[in-house]
């Protein structure tokens, strides 16, 4: 079996997803038996002008990044958007409902001109065609390994299309709504094994919406549990500003 060459790239992000992958440690060595990592700024200084699989972290938020993204697309036969920023715009897209000037003033109050940015932070798919994605903030490393394995085997990535509730119930968690909290689990893609809820939190939607979510019902439920529409939208927009826009139209 010819090992595919894999390169990692980062755009607007915290680079935490790449760090998670480095934290795989023992599995990382096994992973190297099936893939060749040829570029990975966080782990090595070598670069490569050829690669088969490009794994991109971060959202697309500056026009000047377009050239680099297009170059990646031309070189790689498979492009994977890794993590919430690349997959759905993520936290970065929170600013998409504000003005650029306002945001610049908040981030660099003294010298806003230093901060070059587009009006919006968008998923990588807004710039180039993406073949697969690995959701999450950060990505679930088990899922990362699974997607890579499936690609090497020639299978579909195999991500769940069902919501977090399925995994949450399998873990026999008490529904957080019963505890007086609200949660986006019913409309957000599973695959994280309901990690936040199983550890005392709630789902805040980092993995993006499932295909065909019943947003109206989700809003009604959150309203029934005492949230007003502003709080509901704040909660839904934390990671999914762009996804929610796409659903509205």
């Amino acid at each position: 079996m010819n090992k595919p060459k894999v390169a990692f790239f980062d755009f607007t992000s915290c680079e935490g997803c790449q760090l998670s992958i480095l934290n795989l440690e023992t599995e990382l060595l096994q992973l190297l038996d099936i893939i060749d990592i040829v570029e990975f700024r966080e782990a090595m200084s070598e670069k490569s002008s050829t690669y088969d699989i490009a794994i991109i972290e971060g959202s697309f938020s500056r026009d000047k990044d377009l050239k680099r993204l297009k170059k990646i697309r031309e070189t790689a036969s498979v492009v994977i958007a890794m993590g919430a920023c690349a997959h759905i715009g993520g936290i970065n897209s929170l600013r998409n409902n504000q003005t650029r000037e306002g945001v610049q003033k908040i981030v660099y109050p003294d010298n806003p001109a230093l901060y070059e940015t587009n009006k919006k932070a968008l998923p990588v798919s807004a710039a180039i065609k993406v073949d697969a994605f690995i959701p999450g903030c950060p990505v679930d490393v088990g899922e990362f390994v699974k997607v890579v394995k499936n690609l090497v085997l020639g299978k579909a990535p195999g991500l769940p299309t069902y919501p977090v509730c399925v995994e949450c119930k399998m873990n026999e968690n008490t529904c957080v709504y019963e505890l007086g909290k609200t949660c986006l689990g019913p409309v957000v893609r599973a695959g994280c094994n309901a990690i936040c809820i199983s550890n005392g939190g709630v789902c805040i939607g980092c993995r993006g919406l499932i295909p065909n979510p019943n947003i109206n019902s989700q809003k009604d439920i959150m309203e029934k549990y005492g949230l007003d529409m502003n709080l509901i939208m704040d909660s839904m927009n934390l990671f999914m500003t762009e996804e929610n826009k796409a659903k509205e139209v």
């Binding site: 509730c165 065909n212 019902s217």
Partner: peptide, 10 residues
Amino acid sequence: RCLSCGSCIM
């Protein structure tokens, strides 16, 4: 109203 969340089945 159904969310198709699968909870009822689980």
